[in-house]
Design a protein around this nucleic acid. Structure first.
Length: 562
RNA sequence: UGGGGUGUCGUCCAAUGGUAGGACAUGCGGCUCUGGACCGUAGGAUCGGGGUUCGAAUCCCUGCACCCCAGCCA
C-alpha cells in the first residue's frame, strides 16, 4: 500500500506488483530482499526509503531481508560506519536477525569465478593505465577501441591474474576486465573492470587481499549467492542491469536474482548525498554527523523524530520511477502527527516575562492537575506547582495589541493553562522602556481554568512557577539551507541558513521535565515538540526542538506584515 | 549528437481503454482550557501536435522537456 490511499487496501506500487505476480506464477516460492549499504558514511533519510522498502516487502510477503555491507572498496570504508549503520537500521525498527552478510564474505568465491571467466575467454588482464583505459573507452557518441591486451591467451591471463592476486604488481598496474563489447552503446558493457590492485587494509579481511572486486562484479553475484529474489536499487543503476545480468548468466551462480530500479528520495531544503553531507561535517558547518540539523538518521534521532514518523512518511511518499522532490513539510507533518498522538504535554517558557500575582498570598504555593496527553487518556495527569511569581512567554503580552491579538494586554483577562484566569493590572518597564514585569491579579474562583460564572477568555497561556522552574538550554532549529534546492546554482555553502540554529539558554521548564532523560520526547504546549539532548547535565537539561506546532497566529502575523 | 529512463494539481502518489482521485501545502469556515489537535469546505493537473476508438492520462505516430551513464566509486 502506498499509504496515500484509503479506499483500496489492495493498491500496490510497481515493485510490489511485480513481486505479487512472481509469487502468483510460482516464479518464486518466497521473497528475499536485501539492504546493501556501503560502509563509507552515515545513513541518511534517503536510505530510509530503501530500508523500509526492502524490510517492508520481506515482512509483507512473509519472506526475509538481509543486511549486507557492500564492502568492496577498503579505501573508503571503515568499521565505525558499519557500527553506525547497524544502529540506525535497528533504530528504524528493522530486524535482520541472523542475516548479516558482507560482500567480503564472498571474496574467495568471487575470485574463483573470475578464474572461470578467464578460462572461458570472457575476461582478460589489461596492462593499460587508468588514463589509457579511459582513452580507449570512447565517448558517449563514439565507440571504444579494444585494448592491445584484449586478446591474450587464457593461460597467460590466468597466470597474470594469479600474480595480481599474489601481489606481484604495484597498485594500479593491471586490472582484470570482462571481455564484452567495446562498441556497445551502453558504456558499462565496454569491457568493465572486474578487479583492481589496491593495497589497503580492509575493515574485515585486513591485508589478506591486494586485489578487490568492483561493485559491478560483486553485487549481482552476492545477490545470487544469498538467493536474493528481487534486488532493489536506485535509478542510476538502471544501465548497469545488462552487466548485472551478464555476470549472472555467465557464471555458475546458485540463483538468478532480478534487479529492479526505483527513484531515490529527494527533499526540499535538504541535501542527501554522502559527498555533500561529508562536506558539511568536515567543513565544520554543522556539529557532526548527528547534528540535529543533519538529515542523517543519527541527526534526526537526536533531533527527536520518531521512527514511526519516518515509516509513515516513506509510506506516504510512495514509490515510482520518476525523479521527484518531496516537500519537507510532508515529513514535518508526519512527525507532528506521530508526536501529537504519543508525546506527553509539559509547559516551559522560552523567553520569560515575569508575572506577579498581586492578590496571591506571599510565600505560598499549590499544585494543580494537568492532563498529560489530551489525545491519550491513558497518559494520565500530573501535578504542576503554581505560585505568586510566574514566567510567561514574552510573545504572549503586547502593550498595544493589534486587533487579532488575543493574548495578554493591559486590563485584559486570559487563562493560565490548568490554573486561573488572570488580569493584567500594571506594566513595569526598565530605563530603556522595555517591559520587565507584569503586575496581575487572579480570580480564585477560576481554579483549574474554568469560570463558575461562564465568563469567557480568548486566550490560554502556558506558564511556569518561578520558584519551582528548572533552568534549561533549548536549541531551536530551522532549515539548514535557505532555499528549497540548495546548491542548485552555485556553491552549496552559499545557501546555508545562518539562522538554522538558535540557542536559548535561559528557558524555564516545569519541574516534572527533570524526570526525562536523553532521547525522551514531549510537547511543550503551544511551542512544539522537544527531545532531551545527550548534552544535558544534572540540573540543566538541554532540549532540541524537533518541530514546531502548526502556528496559525504566525501566519496571521506574517500576513499583516506584507 | 550513442545508450538507458521519466513526463498527471504548487509538491508526492493513484487511476492498468470507461466519472482524472488521495495526501501534503494553500485559502475560507466551525470547534476548542494548546491560535495545537479535530471537523467541514474551496481552488488547483494529464508536456505539445496528429491519429485509432462510441470513449484515450492510458494505445499508435511525431515532436519537446528533464534525469542518468565516458571511476581501477557505489
Amino acid at each position: 500500500m502506498t499509504g496515500n490511499d484509503d479506499t483500496d487496501g489492495e493498491r500496490q506500487d510497481f515493485i510490489r506488483e511485480i513481486i505479487s505476480e512472481d509469487l502468483a506464477t510460482s516464479k518464486h516460492a518466497e521473497v528475499v530482499t536485501r539492504f546493501p549499504p556501503e560502509p563509507n558514511g552515515y545513513l541518511h533519510i534517503g536510505h530510509t526509503k530503501s530500508i523500509f522498502l526492502n524490510f517492508g516487502i520481506a515482512e509483507e510477503f512473509g519472506g526475509r531481508c538481509h543486511l549486507r555491507f557492500d564492502d568492496t572498496n577498503p579505501v573508503k570504508e571503515e568499521l565505525e560506519y558499519i557500527e553506525s549503520i547497524k544502529e540506525d537500521v535497528r533504530w528504524l525498527g528493522c530486524d535482520w536477525g541472523e542475516r548479516l552478510y558482507h560482500a567480503s564474505d564472498y571474496f574467495e568465491r568471487l575470485y574463483d569465478w573470475a578464474e572461470d571467466l578467464v578460462r572461458a575467454g570472457k575476461a582478460y588482464v589489461d596492462d593499460l593505465s587508468a588514463e589509457e583505459i579511459r582513452a580507449h573507452r570512447g565517448t558517449l557518441t563514439e565507440p571504444g577501441k579494444p585494448s592491445p591486451y584484449r586478446d591474450r591467451e587464457a593461460d597467460e591471463n590466468l597466470e597474470l591474474l594469479r600474480a595480481m592476486r599474489d601481489g606481484k604488481y604495484p597498485d594500479g598496474d593491471k586490472v582484470l576486465r570482462a571481455k564484452i563489447d567495446m562498441t556497445a552503446g551502453n558504456i558499462n558493457l565496454r569491457d568493465p573492470v572486474l578487479y583492481r590492485i589496491l593495497r589497503a587494509t580492509h575493515p574485515r579481511t585486513g591485508d589478506r587481499w591486494c586485489i578487490y572486486p568492483t561493485y559491478d562484479y560483486a553485487h549481482g553475484q552476492s545477490d545470487a549467492i544469498e538467493h536474493i529474489t528481487h534486488s532493489l536499487c536506485t535509478l542510476e543503476f538502471e544501465d548497469h542491469r545488462p552487466l548485472y545480468d551478464w555476470f549472472v548468466d555467465n557464471l555458475p551462480v546458485p540463483s538468478k536474482p532480478r534487479q529492479i530500479e526505483f527513484a531515490r528520495l529527494n527533499l526540499t531544503y535538504t541535501v542527501l548525498s554522502k559527498r555533500r553531507l561529508l562536506q558539511l561535517v568536515k567543513g565544520g558547518h554543522v556539529g557532526g554527523w548527528d547534528d540535529p540539523r543533519m538529515p542523517t538518521i543519527s541527526g534526526i534521532r537526536r533531533r527527536g523524530y520518531p521512527p514511526a514518523a519516518m515509516h509513515d512518511f516513506i509510506e506516504r511518499v510512495g514509490l515510482a520511477k520518476r525523479n521527484s522532490v518531496v516537500d519537507l513539510a510532508m515529513l514535518e507533518h508526519c512527525v507532528r502527527t506521530e508526536l501529537n498522538r504519543t508525546a506527553e504535554r509539559r509547559m516551559g517558557v522560552l523567553r520569560p516575562l515575569k508575572v506577579v500575582i498581586e492578590n496571591y498570598p506571599e510565600g505560598t504555593s499549590e499544585e494543580l492537575e494537568a492532563v498529560n496527553n489530551p489525545e491519550d487518556s491513558a497518559a494520565g495527569t500530573r501535578q504542576v506547582p503554581f505560585g505568586r511569581e510566574l514566567y510567561i512567554e514574552r510573545a504572549d503580552f503586547m502593550e498595544e495589541p493589534p486587533k487579532k491579538f488575543f493574548r495578554l494586554a493591559p486590563g485584559r483577562e486570559v487563562r493560565l493553562r490548568y490554573a486561573y484566569f488572570i488580569t493584567c493590572r500594571d506594566v513595569i518597564k526598565d530605563d530603556t522602556g522595555e517591559v520587565v514585569e507584569l503586575r496581575c491579579t487572579y480570580d480564585p474562583e477560576t481554579r483549574g481554568g474554568d469560570s463558575p460564572d461562564g465568563r469567557k477568555v480568548k486566550a490560554t497561556l502556558h506558564w511556569v512557577s518561578a520558584a519551582h522552574a528548572v533552568g534549561a538550554e533549548v536549541r531551536l532549529y530551522d532549515h539548514l539551507f535557505n532555499r528549497p534546492d540548495p546548491g542548485a546554482d552555485g556553491d552549496l555553502l552559499d545557501d546555508l541558513n545562518p539562522g538554522s540554529l538558535e540557542v536559548v539558554d535561559d528557558a524555564w521548564l516545569e519541574p516534572s521535565i527533570a524526570a526525562f532523560g536523553p532521547g525522551d520526547r514531549f510537547q511543550l504546549e503551544r511551542l512544539g515538540y522537544f527531545c532531551v539532548d545527550p548534552d544535558s547535565v544534572p540540573g540543566k537539561p538541554v532540549l532540541n526542538r524537533a518541530v514546531t506546532l502548526r502556528d496559525s497566529w504566525a501566519k496571521v502575523k506574517a500576513k499583516s506584515k506584507e
